[in-house]
Amino acid sequence: MEALSAKTHREVNKARKKDAASPALKAILHIVLWGVALLQIFPLIWLINYSFLKSGDFFGSGILKWPKSFEWNNYVNAFTYGSVPRFLLNSLFITTITILVAAFLALMLSYAFTRMQWKLRGPAMAFIMLGMIVPIHATLLPNFILFDKLSLIDNPLSLILPYIAFSLPISLLILSGFLETIPRSIEESAVMDGCSVFGVIFRIIMPITKPAIATVCIMNFISWWNEFIMANTFLTSETFKTLPFSIMKFTGQYSSNYGAQFAVMAIIALPTVIIYLMFTEQMSRGITAGAVKG
């Protein structure tokens, strides 16, 4: 390849590229994309559609049904009896603390593992990395005994602590990968200016690693927002129950009212989807940044 001609042809090339993909090809591409996109969200559409139906309308033929009358009552029931608002706040509270503390601890750890010089850093890092493959369910039984001894049952800490601990390996992986790519010269000059290590981490490293921290937060958010087996085991009173429990509670209580069950599922699903759509740009950028550098 001659670099020269490449440069001169670049403009032409770009124009050609747009045209080159013939309209027919483009159309096929879009049809395929829409097809799969529909497959991905169809169940969601179906869920919302049925949440407006009476339980009796569920049976019979037809895949999507235009409701004879919109059963808003389903939503009223869901909101009142599913305790959705409270569970939503609980979920937000627990997840937020988890992802912030996890990011914070992981940043310190990854700094120590990539920058500081100490004998055991290799083995120590490998050790934590092994945690990535430990299934959270394997710790369910002993953790219950542990929390009981600590009187932490029915306390948000019983979720936050394991959530953070299990977030560490993957967060560490991404953050330390990112840190490796940051030139040390910036830190060195800061140290010359009399900055402590903690100062370096929080004044200099943290702003630079923001994209990677965002990735870590997002990945952890997804996993813990949806976690429910621990939540169901360690929390006993409704005060701290998280959102996934709402649906479990509701299917028990409204077992014969399908419409209301679907309404509560829609209520649980929609906020995450909306939040996600709002942050989709940051989310993709974060994952991109972390993945490419990591």
Partner: peptide, 12 residues
Amino acid sequence: IFFIPAVISIVV
């Protein structure tokens, strides 16, 4: 759109 299923709670 492709990512949406991943953000919805598994319970749902």
